[in-house]
Amino acid sequence: MIGRRRTTGLLAAVTLFAAMSGCGAPDGARQAATTPSSKVEKARIKVGVLPVVDVAPLHIAIKNGYFRNEGLEVEPFIVQGGAAAIPGLVQGSLDITFGNWVSFIAAEAKGNAKNAGGLKLISDAYQAKPGMFLILVKGTGSIKTLRDLIGKTIAINTFNNISELTTKAVLEANDIDPKRVTLKEMAMPDMEAAIERNVVDAGFMSEPFITRAQRSSGQLAILDAASGPTDGIPIAGYGTTGRFLQDNPHTVAAFQRAMAKGQRDASDRATVQALLPDYAGVDRDTAKLVHLGQFPTSLDGTRLQRVANLMKTYGLLQTDLAVEPMLVRGPDN
Score class of each variant (00 low, 15 high):
34 T>R: 00
151 G>F: 05
9 G>N: 12
306 R>K: 08
245 L>K: 04
221 A>K: 12
121 L>V: 11
266 A>H: 10
257 R>L: 02
278 D>Y: 07
298 S>W: 06
75 E>V: 12
328 V>A: 08
73 E>M: 04
159 F>P: 00
326 M>V: 06
274 A>T: 15
104 F>K: 07
134 L>E: 10
156 I>D: 03
42 K>A: 02
140 T>F: 12
78 I>S: 01
272 V>H: 03
35 T>P: 00
86 I>H: 02
295 F>V: 10
96 I>R: 07
330 G>R: 11
56 A>H: 03
106 A>C: 05
45 I>E: 08
324 E>S: 05
192 E>F: 07
294 Q>K: 13
196 E>A: 14
327 L>E: 03
143 I>C: 02
221 A>F: 05
291 H>A: 11
108 E>C: 14
333 N>A: 11
204 F>I: 02
201 D>T: 00
95 D>Q: 09
218 G>T: 09
305 Q>V: 05
73 E>K: 07
210 I>M: 10
226 A>M: 04
286 T>F: 07
111 G>H: 08
198 N>G: 13
97 T>K: 01
105 I>P: 01
84 A>H: 05
261 K>H: 09
316 L>K: 06
171 L>G: 07
255 F>N: 05
28 G>M: 09
150 I>R: 00
210 I>H: 01
122 I>H: 11
148 D>R: 03
169 A>I: 03
207 E>T: 13
94 L>R: 10
239 G>K: 06
131 G>D: 13
276 L>Q: 07
268 D>H: 09
179 K>C: 02
59 H>P: 01
173 A>V: 15
25 A>S: 15
128 A>K: 05
134 L>Q: 14
253 A>Y: 05
9 G>C: 13
55 V>P: 09
101 W>K: 14
321 L>Q: 09
35 T>S: 08
189 P>A: 11
109 A>Q: 14
34 T>P: 00
289 L>P: 08
115 N>W: 09
115 N>S: 11
100 N>C: 08
188 M>L: 12
34 T>W: 02
308 A>C: 13
93 S>I: 08
281 G>M: 15
206 S>K: 10
162 I>T: 03
79 V>F: 02
254 A>R: 04
238 Y>A: 14
161 N>I: 04
182 T>D: 03
102 V>S: 06
168 K>D: 07
258 A>H: 02
39 K>F: 03
74 V>Y: 00
283 D>G: 05
17 F>V: 14
128 A>W: 04
102 V>P: 02
292 L>Y: 15
40 V>G: 02
201 D>S: 08
185 E>Q: 11
250 H>G: 03
